[in-house]
Amino acid sequence: MTWQSETLIEMTCAEVEERLPLHALGLLDADEAAAVEAHLPLCPACQSVAVQFEAVAGAMPLALDPIAPDPAMRAQLMDRLDSGAPSAQVTKLPPTAMSPFRRLGLLAAAAVLLLAIGGGFWINRLIDERDEARTTAAMLQEFVSPNAVAMAMAPMAASEYDWGWGTSRLFKNPAGEMMLVVEGCPPTTEERRYPVWVAMGDDRTPLGDIAIGEDGSGWMMVTFPADIPAPEQLGVSMREGEAPLVDLFLGDMTG
């Protein structure tokens, strides 16, 4: 199987700042966008600039002449509010099952960010500070070690408007094991589960659900089905009631 084995691109502040105008318009390539998004949470200066370009992008429609919507559409919307129960995609887990997921999810998210700045020292320090999570942290370190491969998954438009700054990556450790990490989803009080799948052509095969904890991050170990050892795509989707799946992140495995 071939990997788009770009490890995360590291960018300087100048490189990030140069890309922020296009980032605010959603015009960057997936790998560039991922690199920018890995940088921003760690850099107040660039984040401040990003917010300015986002404000400009958000204000541009105000230059347009408003168009009054059809009143019938408003009435229909108000009707739909009754049937649209909030957060249909939420699946609760038993409380006992949540804690370790969250703990590891948080560590994974932190490790992803630290990896982005090449901070092995900080990863170690993070691990030291989490005594009770030592075993899982050791595993994580293996996944984010220099010999591991990381694949940034392209965020779909849905992930941007629903998740703001969500990112997803697939890590493969030297032993060939794979871990999917999602982070940056909006914090909630309930754990959510999103279907993960692999695809050959249009055929999607479910791999299970990734659990996103209240800190907005989550992880799962990924094993490809025996009959699909080298899938073309890996994806994370969102399910809303009976509606079709909405793709949040897609990874192209055939690069």
Binding site: G26, E54, A57, G58, P61, L62, A157, E160, Y161
Partner: peptide, 11 residues
């Protein structure tokens, strides 16, 4: 307002 417009455009 700015957030909503970005979401609307993405959608």
């Amino acid at each position: 307002g700015g957030w909503l417009m970005r979401v609307a455009r993405n959608r």
